[in-house]
Amino acid sequence: MNYLPLQIIVSLFVTFVVFRLTKKFKDNILKPSEFIGWLLIWIIVLVVFWLPQTTSYLALFFGIGRGVDLAVYVAVLIIFYLIFRLYLKIDKQQREITKIVRHLALDKKEKSIENKNGDD
């Protein structure tokens, strides 16, 4: 029962996150696959905090000494993956911005040529 305050804080936080996720899902901001994926992640967080011994079983299965270590490894992996995904998304958005800037530049030039021809 040593973990009780932390368990309560984490549970409240997870409840809040799941509430936000559900709202986003209802508002069609999240796809069903994304909603389920995030929900699973947060349920796993709850399980890890309420039943920490479950991570030990998994850790033994993977050949890692302690459950906590496994949780840290998995968390780091997930964070790296998310950063990678974010980087790709930013890169893609940068390219989209360039397309818009280019379109505006060419469009402006064409319009100025048309106006000039119209004046002549």
Binding site: I97, V101, R102, L104, A105, L106, K108, K109
Partner: peptide, 21 residues
């Protein structure tokens, strides 16, 4: 002839704009 990028997009982007034109 001057083509104007409203914001800085880099040399590669500027060349492609010129090429397209």
């Amino acid at each position: 002839t001057v083509l104007e990028h409203l914001i800085n997009r880099g040399q590669g982007a500027a060349l492609e704009t010129g090429d397209s034109y």
